[in-house]
């Protein structure tokens, strides 16, 4: 009776003394495999889109093509969702500002304009939280 084959993991470097987790180096241990996507796959153009699985699963090599920092992705999604929600609120506020201006309530219109500017600062802050993020 044959036992099922267990997946063979590639040898990992020994953990340095004093650290519980090894330092993570994304990508392949072979540097030549970590070339940019368009070099590894010349068929992929910048307009190919994520529909091409080779964009997201950019192997070979351990870790190559996987999400290398899942928290970054979640944070970016959250920032985008928050910013879009704020912009929806701005659209509503602008309609209100136009209405109150047309009704002659200029002071209220200025308050609305202030709200729009504050909302813009919020969105700007969300954008500037991590400007080097991709």
């Amino acid at each position: 009776m044959t036992e099922p084959l267990e997946p063979v993991e590639p040898p990992r470097p020994a953990e340095p003394a004093g650290t519980r987790y090894p330092e993570y180096h994304p990508g392949s241990a072979h540097a030549e495999l970590n070339r940019p996507v368009h070099e590894r796959y010349p068929q992929i153009r910048p307009t190919s889109g994520y529909g091409d699985p080779r964009v997201r699963h950019t192997g070979p090599g351990p870790g190559a093509g996987t999400e290398q920092e899942p928290e970054r992705s979640s944070k970016l999604t959250a920032r985008l969702a928050l910013a879009m929600s704020v912009v929806v609120g701005q659209l509503w506020a602008l309609t209100e500002v136009v209405d109150v201006w047309m009704e002659g309530r200029t002071g209220t219109a200025w308050w609305g304009a202030g709200f729009l500017c504050l909302s813009f600062l919020v969105v700007l802050g969300l954008w500037l939280l991590d400007p080097k993020d991709r």
Binding site: A83, V86, V87, Q90, L91, A93, L94, V97, V98, W101, A109, G112, A113, F115, L116, C117, S119, F120, V123, L124
Partner: peptide, 11 residues
């Protein structure tokens, strides 16, 4: 968002 803010100020 910046455009909407400018629009609100203009209105």
């Amino acid at each position: 968002s910046g455009g909407l803010a400018v629009g609100g100020l203009g209105v």
